[in-house]
Design a protein around this nucleic acid. Structure first.
Length: 419
RNA sequence: GUGGGUGUAGCUCAGCUGGUGGUAGCACCUGGUUGUGGCCCAGGAGGUCGUGGGUUCAAGUCCCAUCACUCACCCCA
């Protein structure tokens, strides 16, 4: 039996990896423009960290984590908890009252794989810690929207507020009363959810449940004064920055730590996994994890989903790397000469390649062409005897003779000047 | 965890109601030019038809099991 990658784990091979690099390069550029610094955390953390932040009763913690049970450690299922742990551990709040941080890397969840959802997946995660101003919420969403725009993917931004510990319990009761009248009409999942987390009933996909909650009370109308003011300024900010959004009173996030602002970047082109990016505010979380009493907000972008969108929105022009020069050696003596020459060219900074299989000139020319070589240097027995090699320009097809007798380093220098 | 779909060359796939695995396309190698790429032409290499059982004179094809992949539910980025 052949050994293959694990179910839900994927290789990113040449031809596809270029798209990933594009996504990552664009993201780093944008994050930098918005004054974010990179932070990198380990993939393994104590299990307790995720239980305390994401929520003991969430699906992620209950059944989706890769945990080494005997060691009480877990491969991170998301980035925020690890990032906040690092923030607290290093006392970053002392260095700067407001920290703007991003991280890029793999996350792990043991779910059944499907389109846009893998067991090892990759997120670009952005967090602003220490900022209470609602404008920061708008600024973050504007940054996400700008990145997606620059990548050329079209998404819609959906916005909601989940309130805070002061007003959410009240809404929860209001909603529960509404749900109880319709309890029998709900799907089995929603019956269960109405006990554990009634807000979740709001975003059930089951059509009959949707119909039932259509007229459900909106949390947006049950916010306390502070949350309501906050939500209003967030929306003003989005308008000021020209970011389009729609309010969605049914949007509930799956992680327990969210408060107030929550949002999702949604696409219609990925099947069931419609969220390309999502996030929100988590004002009590840092304190809950043993840190200072500071607010926070952040969001994550799913890289697999971005790459899928890029793949289907434009026919992959496989712009694989091109090289500066291919050195074709003909025969054993020439190969002896070419081997160190190619290395000398690379030391000069040129992207250089050669053939090691002793193939015909025709074959080597094909290789050079496939590698996208701008020039080919041809050296055979004739050239060695005469002390002149042939340098061919692959675009213009022009060839010139250049002296090779003065040694590899000099030749590499003159080739570097020529390229 | 629950459903559906699909497994034939490195990739994309033909293969009808069982009767010798495809001149299929892309990719790869060689040649058409004693030492010159892209286009074209010719040739070549590459497969335990996912795996294991069963039915049959005969199974890629039918049946069962199993594994893998995939889509959806659930959940989420």
């Amino acid at each position: 039996m052949k050994i293959t990658a694990l179910n839900g784990f994927k290789d990113i091979v040449p031809g596809e990896v270029e798209l990933w690099q594009r996504v990552e390069t664009a993201a780093r550029a944008i994050f930098s423009r918005f004054n974010f610094s990179e932070i990198r955390m380990p993939i393994l953390e104590k299990t307790e960290l995720f239980a305390r932040s994401i929520g003991e009763t969430t699906d992620i913690v209950e059944k989706e984590m890769y945990t080494f049970v005997d060691k009480q450690i877990t491969m991170r299922p998301e980035a925020t908890a690890s990032l906040l742990r690092a923030y607290i551990q290093h006392g970053l709040h002392v260095q700067k009252p407001i920290q703007r941080l991003f991280t890029i890397g793999p996350m792990f969840r043991h779910e059944r794989p499907q389109k846009g959802r893998l067991r090892q997946f990759h997120q670009m995660d952005v967090e602003v810690i220490g900022a209470q101003n609602p404008r920061v919420d708008a600024e973050l969403m504007a940054m996400g929207a700008l990145l997606l725009e620059e990548l050329g993917v079209t998404v819609s931004l959906e916005l909601n507020s989940l309130g805070c510990p002061a007003c959410r319990p009240g809404f929860r009761e209001t909603l529960l009363a509404f749900i109880e009248d319709r309890y029998e009409a709900l799907c089995d999942d929603c019956k269960r959810r109405s006990n554990t987390n009634p807000l979740r009933v709001l975003d059930c996909k089951n059509p009959s449940c949707r119909a039932q909650v259509e007229e459900a009370p909106s949390i947006q109308e049950h916010l306390c004064g502070e949350c309501s003011d906050h939500f209003a300024v967030v929306q003003e900010g989005l308008q000021q920055l020209g970011v389009n959004y729609t309010l969605n009173k049914f949007m509930v996030r799956g992680l327990d730590y969210y408060t107030r602002t929550t949002f999702e970047f949604i696409t219609g082109d990925l099947g069931a996994q419609a969220a390309v990016g999502a996030g929100g505010r988590y004002d009590g979380l840092i304190e809950q994890l043993g840190g200072p009493k500071v607010p926070g907000i952040g969001f994550a972008l799913g890289m697999e989903r971005l790459v899928l969108l890029l793949q289907q929105q434009e026919e992959m022009e496989s712009a694989q790397g091109e090289i500066d020069i291919f050195v074709a050696g003909l025969g054993e003596a020439a190969s002896e000469f070419v081997f160190p020459l190619v290395h000398a060219l690379r030391r000069k900074g040129l992207r250089a390649a050669m053939d090691h299989e002793g193939r015909s000139l025709k074959s080597q020319m094909k290789q050079a062409n496939k590698a996208g070589a701008k020039r080919v240097l041809i050296i055979g027995d004739n050239e060695l005897e005469q002390g002149q090699a042939v340098l061919r320009d692959m675009q213009t097809q022009e060839q010139e003779e250049i002296p090779i007798a003065s040694g590899v380093d000099k030749l590499a220098g003159s080739l570097f000047a020529a390229c």
